[in-house]
């Protein structure tokens, strides 16, 4: 991974996504990333299950007569036990309907950030844009995470996911452009001019929406749809079965919604007499943007949509899954 000249000692970038949580910290002259799936699998207590978990060195904790397998192990064991994982987060925020949500997020985060080495250690974590229908939920989400990281002994900062993409990917453009993070629970975007956020927005049609919708119309489990989506989907090729066909349809819907909201937000920014001096680049990142052909589909749809902001190019992040954490890390180091 690219090195950062400024000292990042004691600084951690944390991407807290609906489907994955990733940390980035400096290790020597390099940056080191660690990821955990943001999911868990509750299993009823039994001696046999406990032995399996112990033999496989699985991350779990025991509560109320259940084992809670969490992180990367949860997905692996979901396949093994033919069960569906559950998510502590939904739509980019802590899931209020999931009683174990906060405990599990804390456990996962603690495993990733470890303990601070000094009082000055700082974690900059990503937050989504405020949902249009419940903006106060973001405050709750952000404050809970801040509180927990402070409990662990860290100083904290938060950064909008879209802005994090800009910090990570638009350094050559002096942080001018549009960064879009297409995650599991949400798509988050930000237009920045010389690093200053001009407009930001989020949509709730993202990876999970695709998985659930495709699962619903094809009769497949959302977990399996997600696996197909991440491992073999190529949006440049014609679909070869009904699952891929549905995936094409719902990807189109996600892209369409994203571009409609993008144009709407950019129009509002333009109406505030903002005039960009030159066309700006758009950078796509996040797990949902990873399938082959996503960039082309998005670029084509954006071009056809008469975007009010002149766009110079649409490009995919060099490392879509790490971009948000990397941007959060840059923001953390900036605060040195």
């Amino acid at each position: 991974m690219e090195s950062v000249a400024a000292s990042g000692e004691g600084r951690i970038g944390l991407d807290i996504g609906t489907s994955k949580i990733m940390s980035i910290r400096q290790s020597g002259n390099q940056l080191k990333a660690s990821t955990e799936v943001n999911a868990f699998l509750p299993l009823p207590y039994s001696r046999i299950t406990e032995n399996i978990l112990l033999q496989n060195k699985v991350h779990y904790y025991q509560n109320n007569g259940h084992f809670f397998v969490y992180g990367n192990s949860a997905e692996k064991f979901a396949g093994l036990f033919n069960a569906e994982t559950r998510r502590p987060m939904s739509g980019g925020l802590i899931n209020p309907d999931e009683p174990a949500a906060l405990t599990l997020i804390k456990v996962i985060i603690k495993g990733l950030v470890k303990k601070p080495k000094s009082d000055d250690d700082l974690v900059c974590f990503s937050v989504p844009g405020a949902p249009a229908d419940a903006p106060h939920d973001l405050i709750y989400h952000e404050q809970l995470l801040k509180g927990y990281l402070s409990e662990l002994g860290f100083k904290t900062k938060s950064i909008n996911e879209g802005q994090a993409i800009i910090f990570a990917e638009l350094e050559k453009e002096n942080f001018t452009g549009i960064g879009i993070s297409c995650g599991g629970g949400m798509c988050n975007a930000c237009l920045a001019y010389l690093s200053v956020p001009v407009a930001s927005f989020s949509t709730t049609k993202a990876g999970d929406f695709i998985d659930k919708s495709v699962g619903s119309v094809t009769g497949e489990s959302a977990t399996r749809v997600k696996l197909i989506k991440e491992q073999s989907l190529d949006l440049t090729k014609d679909p070869k079965d009904k699952i891929e066909e549905a995936l094409h349809i719902y990807y189109d819907e996600v892209i369409g919604e994203l571009i409609r909201t993008l144009n709407d937000s950019m129009s509002k920014a333009s109406s505030e007499s903002h005039q960009l001096d030159a066309p700006v680049p758009v950078v796509l990142a996040g797990g949902t943007a990873q399938p082959a052909g996503f960039r082309d589909k998005f670029a084509k749809a954006l071009e056809a949509s008469n975007c009010p902001v002149p766009v110079s190019e649409v490009r995919l992040s060099s490392n879509p899954s790490q971009a948000t954490a990397r941007g959060a890390f840059i923001a953390a180091v900036y605060d040195s």
């Binding site: 950062v4 400024a6 910090f167 350094e171 050559k172 002096n174 942080f175 010389l194 900036y334």
Partner: peptide, 25 residues
């Protein structure tokens, strides 16, 4: 703005660049 853009382009490190832009503004 173009001047700030041009000066910023000479700074290779993203964190320093971010610091320079914001400090100047």
């Amino acid at each position: 703005r173009a001047r700030l853009d041009s000066l910023s382009s000479r700074i290779p490190d993203p964190v320093h660049k971010l610091w320079f832009i914001n400090r100047t503004l």
